[in-house]
């Protein structure tokens, strides 16, 4: 504080004052983030170098041994793989569906616009406990979904939805789609308001089909929003806990469990190993950050 700042000749006193005022505006929000997110995360970093159960923790020998331990942890590898399966299937599927729905809703001739929008968005207002319960009941062996499929003659005997790896993952992805497609749709719908209609009309006059006009004219203009939703959804999926915990309970045989769910198990169900849990959380953080960087590199060219 006491050290005098080196003189910066090019900045006028007025500019300097403006800049300081600017920092003052940032202060409350930044302090809260630094205090309540970054500071605990630093403590978690220290914790990730410690081993021991319960409160009997000591620094590991070598320090990074929790991280090397991850490489031998079959459950960790399985949950990491599961999480990536969700990421690769669910995020693109959801974003494409949201994009299509938003485009349909953006049609000026569409009737009952707000009814459609409301109906499709509402699921994202439903809390975890509620929706997990409803889904579990619907996908039970003698639940509604099986009743309906059998009624339609599509299957002969009930499908054991949550009891098989493939179908359990499918139900989980379906749940995610149900809850979050409408949410992303709203973002696209908003972005579409900024798309210049005349560019689409021009493309159509040049003979492009609606689908082509959408793909070549509309979508590029939505790029910043697609990038934003992609980063947010990637982040959400890599930290996915709710669905794995409450909907499939990780089963069968951990094949639908996510990393965050495993993190919770290591911390609270098993004999608690917080050093190791912190190492797992850092792996999540690093993967999310790496993917965000990649997405930004691919997507954004501003600045």
């Amino acid at each position: 504080m006491a050290a005098p700042l080196p003189p910066r000749p090019k900045v006028s006193p007025l500019e300097r004052r403006k800049s300081l005022t600017g920092w003052a505006f940032l202060l409350p929000a930044s302090l809260l983030i630094l205090w309540l997110s970054f500071w605990p995360m630093i403590q978690a970093a220290i914790l990730s170098l410690q081993t021991g159960r319960g409160t009997r923790l000591s620094f590991a020998e070598p320090l990074w041994s929790n991280y090397t331990r991850l490489l031998e942890d079959e459950t960790f590898k399985l949950t990491l793989q599961n999480t990536f399966i969700y990421l690769v299937i669910q995020v693109p599927l959801m974003l494409v569906m949201a994009l299509i729905l938003a485009n349909l809703l953006n049609n000026p001739n569409l009737r009952f616009k707000s009814m459609w929008r409301t109906a499709i968005f509402l699921p994202s207002a439903v809390g975890l406990v509620s929706y997990a319960l409803v889904f579990r009941t619907m996908f039970a062996n003698d639940g509604l979904v099986n009743d309906m499929l059998m009624g339609l003659g599509l299957i002969d005997s009930p499908v054991n939805w949550l009891g098989q790896t493939g179908t359990a993952r499918f139900v989980l992805v379906l749940g995610l789609l149900w809850r979050w497609t409408g949410y992303n749709m709203i973002f696209y719908l908003a972005a579409l308001q900024t798309v210049d209609r005349s560019t689409i009309e021009a493309a159509k006059i040049d003979g492009a089909s609606s689908a082509k006009a959408f793909w070549y004219v509309t979508v590029p203009q939505l790029k910043p929003m697609i990038l934003l939703t992609a980063i947010l959804s990637t982040n959400g999926t890599l930290q996915l806990f709710d669905e794995s915990y409450a909907l499939t309970a990780g089963g069968p045989a951990n094949t639908s469990m996510t990393i965050s769910h495993y993190l919770y198990m290591v911390s609270f169900r098993n004999s608690p190993n917080f050093g190791y849990a912190s190492a797992i959380s850092y792996v999540i953080l690093i993967i999310v950050a790496a993917l965000a960087v990649v997405q930004l590199k691919v997507g954004d060219k501003r600045d």
Binding site: A140, N141, G143, N160
Partner: peptide, 11 residues
């Protein structure tokens, strides 16, 4: 018969 959730078991 195997079911998947506690709720189903009670059912």
């Amino acid at each position: 018969v195997e079911v998947n959730t506690w709720d189903e078991y009670i059912n």
